[in-house]
Simulated scan of single mutants.
Amino acid sequence: MVAKGFTVDLNKPLVFQVGHLGEDYQEWIHQPIVCKESPRFFGNDIVEFLTKNKWWYIPLIWLPVVAWFLVKSIYMGNTILDVALVAALGIFTWTLMEYSLHRFLFHIETKTYVGNTLHYLLHGCHHKHPMDGLRLVFPPAATAILLFPFWNLIKLVSAPSTAPALFAGILLGYVMYDVTHYYVHHGQPISEFPKNLKRYHLNHHFRIQDKGYGITSSFWDKVFGTLPPSKVEGKSR
Rank of each mutant, 00 (worst) to 15 (best):
V137G: 02
F138V: 12
T143C: 12
T143R: 03
L146G: 14
L146S: 14
L147I: 05
F148N: 06
F148P: 03
F150K: 07
L153P: 08
L153N: 11
L153W: 15
K155R: 15
L156H: 11
V157G: 07
V157R: 03
V157Q: 04
A159P: 02
P160R: 12
S161V: 14
P164L: 07
L166C: 02
L166E: 06
F167G: 00
A168Q: 00
A168E: 00
G169D: 04
I170L: 08
I170Y: 02
L171R: 01
L171A: 03
L172N: 00
G173N: 03
Y174C: 01
Y174T: 00
V175Y: 01
M176C: 11
M176K: 03
M176V: 13
D178T: 02
D178M: 07
D178W: 04
D178C: 02
V179Q: 03
V179M: 11
T180K: 09
T180R: 13
Y183E: 04
V184G: 01
V184Q: 10
H185L: 07
H186N: 11
H186R: 09
G187L: 00
G187Y: 13
G187D: 07
S191G: 10
P194Y: 08
K195P: 05
K195M: 13
K195D: 03
N196S: 13
L197S: 09
L197Y: 07
